[in-house]
């Protein structure tokens, strides 16, 4: 056990512990905050594994943007503030499948790698990763930019109910709920 192993083990324990809390807590907002802890620990593991650029992209995009988006969604759907009991389905099947997948994959990987050691390669700095991205992986990179654009347009179209709607039918709003809803728009 070298220092790298100890660091990886400690960060892994933090990540898995925070992950357990994400999927088991009864407070919606706390689930988002535990997700920050989990993603931060994973970023630390990336740094120990010499993936510098991936670490900072993870911190910027996941911890910075994705978690903020998720917390906004929690607020916009007017989630209850305190503990709520109706967040979970009764699920032995979920525990069975999730535990089976996790422990099965873990057993497979333990069997594959045992207690072997590898040398850490040279660090994945922005320069080296950039050479690879813009040298060998240009086509997927460009495809991803098109995909991001498509996702952006898709999100805008989805969140604007007035885009692509058929013209309103001739019948006037009849019941009070209908009128109230139209007035609210």
């Amino acid at each position: 056990m070298t220092g790298v192993d100890v660091l990886l083990l400690a960060l892994g324990v933090v990540a898995v512990g925070a992950g357990v809390l994400v999927v088991s807590t009864r407070h919606l907002v706390r689930a988002g905050l535990y997700l920050v802890v989990c993603l931060g620990a994973l970023a630390g593991m990336f740094l120990v594994l010499t993936a510098e650029l991936v670490t900072w992209v993870q911190v910027l995009i996941y911890v910075g943007a994705v978690v903020v988006l998720l917390l906004f969604a929690v607020m916009l759907t007017r989630a209850p503030i305190g503990a709520s009991d109706d967040l979970d389905r009764p699920g032995w099947p979920a525990a069975l499948i999730g535990g089976g997948v996790g422990l099965g994959l873990a057993a497979l990987l333990v069997d594959a790698y045992r207690w072997t050691t590898v040398e850490l390669p040279e660090a994945g700095t922005a320069e080296r990763i950039g050479e690879q991205v813009f040298g060998a992986w240009v086509l997927p990179f460009e495809l991803l930019s098109v995909l991001l654009l498509a996702a952006l347009v898709g999100a805008i179209v989805l969140s604007r109910p007035d885009i692509g709607r058929r013209p309103p039918e001739s019948h006037p709003p009849t019941d009070s709920v209908d009128g109230e809803r139209r007035a609210a728009r």
């Binding site: 990540a15 898995v16 992950g19 357990v20 994400v22 999927v23 989990c38 994973l42 979920a94 525990a95 499948i97 999730g98 535990g99 089976g100 997948v101 996790g102 422990l103 994959l105 873990a106 497979l108 990987l109």
Partner: peptide
């Protein structure tokens, strides 16, 4: 692997 299992469970 454990995190993936937790995600499936969630």
């Amino acid at each position: 692997a454990l995190l993936f299992g937790l995600g499936v469970y969630g």
